[in-house]
Design a protein around this nucleic acid. Structure first.
Lengths: 196, 196
DNA sequence: ATTGATACTATGATTTTCATAGGGTCAAGC
DNA sequence: GCTTGACCCTATGAAAATCATAGTATCAAT
């Protein structure tokens, strides 16, 4: 499992055995119209202002990019996940790529527009850690400044360097309990497929 | 109209003519359970991870605090607004206060927990301004560093001071077109009440 | 007695989401 | 070639949320 940070978006999983030769299938959905307002918050929340999209984006940032894995880790239903992925793709936030030609298999990855959602995810993280946690639960993913290895504050400040560190210069380390929770979810999903 | 920033949360509107003597009515809804995960993003989006809650919170930050005004500026239906306000109150994000006793009138204000949502709102703002705008539309609300009066970058950095400025040390100045749009919405809502 | 402002509630239609089940394709193993 | 399993979804009908529209209740001011 890969976690938040610039290096965290590299893919360590085995790549396609056969390299793609034709361009990936692109259903070309029309991008939904933006709301009729100049407010940037109304516009952005019309794109990603719902729980499922945000959870999907969280997973994509964590390096989870396949349909079954997104299902397991978000808890969404297949139709919901399909619909959201199509919409996110139509809006230009993610792209759907074949990572294998035979058999044909797809993965979803954040585009530049999607990667730029990281501050939103981090803002939700900071608020959730501050207001939705007991102290003994601990931080789900600890984040560190790449250059000095100091653990960052929830607002992204480095106590050593005294500056707000861009997320591309950070790396994350998951809490063992959180890692365990995620593995449980993956295992449960795998079980429910094999034994209905 | 008041805008984002520390001073922006002061209320310049005429205050209650009669000061409240009994404590405000508090319906005491049960706060919805948090999802069964350590993930702070899942927890926070279960509280405020929907378009309507985010738009309501945006308005509260802009100093809009009354039911009819929230209706007009968010475009929500009355039931939806009622439901969201009750939930936000039950979750401790806002409080419902009588600003007048006779007639009994209420307003909604952000608590400390709610005020701490500002980074989320600002992250949506930055993304929306970057990815959901044409250059000629311009920024809806320009933000400035209180101490040096410099206009801030979308990520909150002050070009003069070279630091990321906490939002409590900023003030906002709305784009005239955006101001006009908001006044239009308020006027349209007032019209639809008087002449059905 | 009427008008207007404020803060909602009611109702029935429409849309979205949910739980559960199933379908289609291909690789690998026997 | 037949089965098993992995992967990526699609189908269906029930339940819940949301929508547009209309209406209620209280009180002040006129």
């Amino acid at each position: 499992m890969i976690f938040i940070g610039s290096s965290g978006y590299d893919d360590h999983r085995p790549q396609a055995k056969v390299r793609p030769r034709r361009p990936p299938e692109t259903p070309a959905l029309p991008s939904q119209d933006l709301p009729d307002t100049l407010c940037p918050i109304a516009r952005s929340t019309s794109r990603v202002g719902d729980k499922w999209s945000l959870l999907i984006i969280r997973e994509l940032f964590m390096g989870v990019s396949r349909f079954q894995d997104l299902l397991a880790q978000t808890g969404a239903t297949p139709q919901l996940l399909t619909a959201r992925l199509k919409q996110l793709q139509a809006d230009g936030l993610i792209e759907r790529r074949a990572y294998s030609e035979r058999p044909l298999r797809f993965e979803y990855r954040l585009t530049a527009m999607g990667l730029d959602l990281m501050p939103i995810i981090l803002a939700f993280r900071a608020w959730g850690e501050t207001w939705c946690k007991t102290p003994e639960e601990g931080v789900a993913v600890r984040m560190f400044h790449n250059s000095c290895r100091t653990e960052l504050e929830l607002d992204g400040r480095c106590p050593t360097c005294g500056v707000t560190v861009p997320w591309t210069e950070t790396h994350g380390l998951p809490n063992p309990a959180y890692l365990e929770e995620r593995m449980q979810r993956a295992a449960a999903a795998a079980r429910s497929v094999s034994e209905p």
